[in-house]
Amino acid sequence: MIEIAKEAAKYAGTYLQERFLQQLIPDEELHNDVKLPEDKESERRIIEVLHKHFPDHTIYSEEIGMVERKEDYLWIVDPLDGTNNYFIGYPYFSISLALQYKGDVILGVVYNPVAGQMFWAEKGKGAFLNGKRLEVNKRDDLTRAVGTYIRGRNSVTKEQELEFTRPFVLKTKRLLRNIAPALDWCLLANGWLDYIVMQRSSIMDVAAGILIAQEAGALVTDWNGEIYHHEDFDKERLPSLVASNGVLHEKVRELISE
């Protein structure tokens, strides 16, 4: 299944890379988002591959919604994670696929076609980047820590974002706002980031990335410190999470209350 997920991601990624840096014409521009035909074509390619190999698997994808089947397998697909980045020619975007079985995520694939980065994980088997096993870093100095902030598109106002992120900006080395959450979790998995704070973001955007980070040794909790466990997929669920290399976790979590 992991190899088929990689195949689907590469098939979509080849198309997205061909279209990247073109003068893209959106179907719709919204206040916090943009709708591109490239999103839909990427989705079509992913679904084509998945249903060719797994015709009885259910698929939930961002553009088309739920494609119901009778199996206990559910693919959670974001065909273009970082659409706004893609639209403005910023090479930080990915294709994200997670597979849920009986309510638990068992594999995840996140593919950045521009950088040639294929991240993947199977539950209990570790996380990998292009075949190299991933592991979070051991940084313990909060003032040298680099993190990223992820928020829901329409669930947090810009005023709330500014208020919430202020302690992280002031007390850590750098807080990024990359607007491609699946890929952010993979950077944590490879030790490039030290922490992530997520505020009311859709699980669809991050399911694959969270598994990859967890399999690389990241500690993922809710804001109260309770260990995160994937719940049966619900597109309306907007969890708020904090993740880190484990060493910095309580120091990062304390900044939330500030």
Rank of each mutant, 00 (worst) to 15 (best):
D56S: 10
H57L: 10
T58N: 07
I59E: 00
Y60C: 01
S61I: 02
E62S: 08
E62D: 13
E62K: 06
E63D: 04
E63R: 02
E63N: 03
I64Q: 14
I64W: 04
G65I: 02
G65Q: 12
G65A: 06
E68M: 13
E68W: 05
R69Q: 12
K70S: 10
K70W: 12
K70Q: 14
E71V: 07
D72N: 09
Y73D: 12
Y73A: 10
W75V: 02
V77W: 00
D78K: 02
D78T: 03
D78E: 04
P79F: 02
P79S: 10
L80I: 07
N84Y: 05
N85A: 06
I88T: 08
Y90C: 06
Y92V: 07
F93D: 01
I95E: 00
S96A: 11
A98H: 01
L99M: 15
Y101T: 15
K102P: 04
G103Q: 09
I106N: 03
L107N: 05
L107T: 06
G108P: 02
V109G: 00
V110Y: 01
N112M: 06
P113F: 00
A115L: 13
G116D: 14
Q117H: 15
M118E: 04
F119D: 00
F119E: 01
A121I: 07
A121N: 03
E122H: 08
K125N: 14
K125W: 07
G126L: 03
A127D: 00
A127F: 03
F128T: 07
L129P: 02
N130T: 14
G131I: 09
G131P: 12
K132G: 05
E135L: 15
E135M: 15
V136R: 00
V136C: 12
K138R: 12
D140V: 08
D141Y: 08
D141N: 11
L142K: 03
T143L: 14
R144Q: 06
A145E: 03
A145T: 03
T148W: 06
T148N: 14
Y149R: 09
Y149T: 05
I150D: 00
I150F: 05
R151H: 08
R153S: 12
N154A: 13
N154L: 15
S155M: 11
V156N: 02
T157D: 12
K158Y: 10
Q160C: 05
E161W: 06
L162Y: 11
F164L: 11
R166D: 13
R166M: 15
F168E: 00
F168L: 14
